[in-house]
Design a protein around this nucleic acid. Structure first.
Length: 476
RNA sequence: GGCGCGGUAGCCAAGUGGUAAGGCCGGGCUCUGCAAAAGCCCCAUGCGUCGGUUCAAUUCCGACCCGCGCCUCCA
């Protein structure tokens, strides 16, 4: 059974399969603009895309995942100039940070990660094709605009009828749009090439229309064409990109190549709220991964939280939610441990599984897998996983091996790495000393002293957990 | 105004035309010198409101109330 996913364009749930005659499933995801640290809202989208890719791979598809780096636009240029760095140095710094965060969150690296600056010739070529075909025009200042009215089905992704909106010249707030782009023939037209301005500094490139830089939308069209071809299988991004960015991509690509059917499937993920409010700079609730780690959360706990809601519903990210995820993840680890014990596997075998003969089996997790394949229902899948882990009947070793195979694949698809090395908290010498003394007191049944030592430890912020054969010291 | 999403227990969150998964919290029990941890058990006659269709609706239809998103460069 193939993976099914809701498609924004058709508004239907459709199977994800490579185009006939192709054996690789090509997906293009709009990547980050590298002008600062990505926030958890960005990562919700990238994480959900990562789960989709992993799920497709577990389902047996060969996937080519392309995710660009936007390293030339207003924000990156402004940021570079403000920091006194070259655009390249500035964007490299933030791209590196992005990659570090991605690794921490367990995101698989895309197979291709094209840079917009490195694809300027391709963008220029595409703009030239659009001009040649009459879909774009050159303004007096050398900027080039896409002529929306030449694209009959413009608006098809968003189901907007632009033939009736052509005279629109202001946005919903009643403000005139983009005063500096007054040379556009229509308010719906958008920039393909922006002529060189003094504030761009050294960041301009040659083109048939003079020096300048590409508009934002054209980069994704050019890079997807370069790496996946004129048509490919799936295009993803945050829901905010649906309009106008993705609509514009369709128009540019289909008009430039003359081939309809740019992306066969559109995958949009809903936004994140933080503590019940929309994320925004002014509210100061744009959390970065670093900030959450500083609060004591692990990246895996953050990942669990980000995928714990269905991707098409907005998710309210709260600190309590990450706390809940910590408990849930711990429960998952305990369940997995029990299963491993029953199967006679070690944790290492679980992480790099799985006995050959059970590679294809799902054990009792077949249902969880089925649920995941149905529109990437991660919450439903997790619910099913917990249901199985709570089942009372002890599996036989053979059944447990099958279960381990199934669970390992599901956790791989979700990108949840269990038993991840937790940051080792160094135990101060005085705490270790108190612990040792308490253990000794307990062994000699001097409970009064043991209790006092427990209190002493608590005063230092430590908790002692007794086991049958020893004890652990934990920071409380 | 246009396009779209959602309202399910204290919190989070799946799902279904036949009577509500799961996680967190909470309560109980077992275990335990104590404290934890862990395991087990319990925890919505109810799914925004009002109508309709149906043998049967939380699930379909209609209306309404409430919340939210996008509508030109924000994942």
């Amino acid at each position: 059974m193939p993976v099914f996913l809701h498609d924004t364009m058709s508004r239907e749930k459709r199977p994800l399969l490579p185009k006939p005659g192709r054996d690789v499933y090509g997906m293009y995801c709009c990547g980050p603009t590298v002008y600062g640290p990505a926030h958890i809202g960005n990562f919700r989208t990238f994480t959900v895309q990562d789960v989709l890719r992993r799920t497709l791979e577990v389902a047996g598809l060969k996937v080519k995942h392309v995710r660009n780096i936007t390293d030339v636009d207003d924000k990156t240029i402004r940021g570079a100039q403000a920091s006194g760095q070259t655009l390249g140095d500035f964007t490299k710094k933030w791209a590196d940070k992005f990659h570090a965060d991605c690794r921490a969150l367990g995101l698989l690296a895309p197979h291709v990660e094209p840079s917009a600056v490195e694809h300027i010739p391709q963008q220029v070529a595409m703009i030239k094709a659009l001009v040649d075909r009459g879909h774009a025009y050159v303004a007096k200042d050398g900027s080039v605009y896409f002529k929306v009215c030449t694209c009959a089905d413009y608006g098809k992704l968003n189901h907007i009828d632009f033939s009736k909106l052509e005279t629109q010249s202001e946005n919903s707030a009643g403000e005139a749009n983009d005063a500096d782009e007054y040379e556009r023939e229509s308010a719906s037209d958008f920039a393909l090439w922006k002529s060189r301005k003094p504030e761009d500094g050294a960041n301009f490139w040659p083109s048939p229309w003079g020096e300048g830089r590409p508009g934002w939308h054209i980069e994704c069209s050019a890079m997807s064409l370069a790496h996946l071809g004129a048509t490919f299988d799936l295009h993803g991004g945050g829901i905010d990109l649906c309009f106008p960015h993705h609509e514009n991509e369709i128009a540019q690509s289909e008009c430039a190549t003359g081939v309809k059917g740019f992306a066969a499937h559109w995958f949009h993920s809903a936004h994140l709220m933080v503590e019940g409010e929309k994320m925004s700079k002014s509210k100061g609730n744009l959390y970065t991964l670093d900030e959450l780690v500083a609060k004591g959360f692990s990246p895996m706990e953050v990942r669990y939280t980000l995928i714990s809601g269905h991707y098409r519903s907005s998710l309210n990210f709260t600190m309590k939610g990450v706390d809940d995820s910590r408990s849930a993840l711990a429960k998952l680890e305990r369940g997995a441990d029990r299963l491993l014990a029953a199967a006679g596997f070690s944790r290492a075998e679980f992480a790099a599984p799985v006995a050959q003969e059970v590679q294809t089996s799902w054990g009792r997790f077949a249902k969880a897998w089925e649920v995941l394949q149905d529109d990437l229902n991660i919450p439903g899948c997790l619910g099913q996983v917990f249901t199985v882990l709570a089942e009372k009947d002890e599996p036989t070793a053979e059944q447990a091996r099958q279960d381990v195979s199934g669970l390992a694949k599901i956790l791989f698809a979700l990108g949840l790495q269990l038993f991840a090395a937790k940051a080792e908290v160094a135990i101060p010498a005085d705490v270790a000393e108190l612990g040792a003394r308490r253990w000794a007191a307990k062994q000699s049944k001097d409970f009064a002293a043991a209790d006092q030592l427990r209190k002493d430890l608590a005063a230092l912020g430590w908790t002692m957990l007794d086991r049958k054969d020893g004890y652990d010291l934990k920071k409380s």
